[in-house]
Simulated assay, not measured.
Amino acid sequence: MISRTRALVTQWTIATPMAAVLLLAFTWGRSLPAGIVVLLTLVLAVSVLAAVHHAEVVAHRVGEPFGSLVLAVAVTVIEVALIVTLMIDGGDKSATLARDTVFAAVMITCNGVVGLSLLVGSLRHGTAVFNPEGTGAALATVATLATLSLVLPTFTTSARGPEFSTLQLTFAAVSSLILYGLFITTLTVRHRDYFLPITRQGEVITSEDHAHAPSARTALLSLGLLGMALIGVVGLAKGVSPTIESGVEAAGLHHAVVGVIIALLVLLPETIAALRTARRDRVQTSLNLALGSAMASIGLTIPAVALASVWLPGRLVLGLGATHMLLLALTVVVASLTVVPGRATPLQGGVHLVLFAAYLELAINP
């Protein structure tokens, strides 16, 4: 029994989250030398892989579409905590942090993750098939949330600059929670079959036959380790962010690049999980992950920063500039045309990836 326990602890998927949390406890809030930053980056990368593994274990136990929510919600909750923490410590630079992070999450998921998933699925299986009813509903919710929270502040006149007044911010926060709650209800209760993977004949896949589901005990262990891994990923990302900021400033890049890099690190577990499911011809699950993450990022972050703004002294700038609004509008149009047929070729994946590359290029060279 003792030997089995020791063997279990030595498995990297269990040892890595523990190591990440321990490193985080010893390095939090301290100035770190270059060697420690390199170590934290390596542990962060391995923690991402461990998070993906444990998320897949939990997802296999609870089944789809519930499994798609596990990683998306877990990452977003911790991402919100990271944003609020950085806003407290960031001074004037933190005024646009929530906006930049949320918009980066939308572009990464709706163009980067969606594009890669469609490309991998279609190259491996000829075409990528998914349910347009569920995917279209998710896309419509993302578009509405993004417009209400990130576009409208640019055009309102009650507050100076691209900001909401207190009443407008309250409305945006409550609307975000209501829409996200409606989506969760639709996804898990009323129209669950709209979000399940489908065959090439359009039949819903209700179960996986290739492996037995893990036990409840194994799933609970993986759920706890998933939380530890995600805490380690986000916390270590915050630990290496000063080094990233210094490198960005030394390179003469725009400060928003820091938010993009952090968002890429935080969303890496979902990206890897989406690509793995796309390779197994379960593109619907990949799209659930991508659009669910975008939705959770807006639907949970905006209410959280709205509440935090009550005691935070600085400004809260949410409105996007003209360039980013154009990218958002083009993303919504292209994604709508991608979703309608219910199947995609490598062309559609390539279009989304080009939009994602354009976003990165404009973040580096606005």
Rank of each mutant, 00 (worst) to 15 (best):
L86N: 01
F183S: 04
T186I: 07
A72F: 10
L230D: 02
E361R: 11
A273W: 04
I244W: 03
R217F: 00
F356W: 15
A143L: 06
G29M: 10
G161R: 04
W12F: 10
V248S: 08
L268I: 02
L230S: 01
A229M: 01
I14R: 13
D89M: 13
A274N: 01
A256M: 10
G314A: 07
T157S: 14
F103M: 14
F195L: 04
T166E: 13
P346I: 11
A263Q: 12
I244T: 09
L360F: 09
L167R: 14
V340F: 13
T331Q: 08
A159I: 09
I244A: 12
T96C: 02
S215W: 13
A294T: 11
V120N: 00
M1V: 13
V258M: 02
A137E: 09
T331Y: 09
L169F: 02
P313N: 01
F164N: 07
H255C: 03
G35Y: 11
V189I: 04
A219E: 03
V334H: 09
R30W: 10
Q11H: 14
V332F: 09
Q284I: 08
R217E: 12
S241M: 15
G292A: 05
R4K: 13
L253G: 02
T218G: 06
A128Y: 03
A34E: 09
T10R: 15
W28G: 00
Q284A: 14
L49E: 07
V234Q: 04
L69F: 06
V310Y: 11
V75W: 12
L268Q: 07
T156P: 01
L223W: 05
G292L: 11
V317W: 08
V334I: 14
A146D: 11
L69Q: 06
V142Y: 02
S336W: 15
H212E: 14
T41N: 05
V248P: 05
L123D: 01
T85S: 14
V332H: 06
V174P: 00
F356G: 02
L177C: 09
G202S: 07
I2W: 01
A216E: 07
D281N: 15
T199D: 02
T135A: 14
V334S: 08
G235W: 12
G63H: 14
G350P: 00
G63D: 11
D100K: 06
T16I: 15
V233D: 05
G321C: 09
T96Y: 06
Q201N: 11
A72I: 04
L300D: 01
L300C: 03
L328E: 03
V310P: 00
L82T: 06
G121T: 06
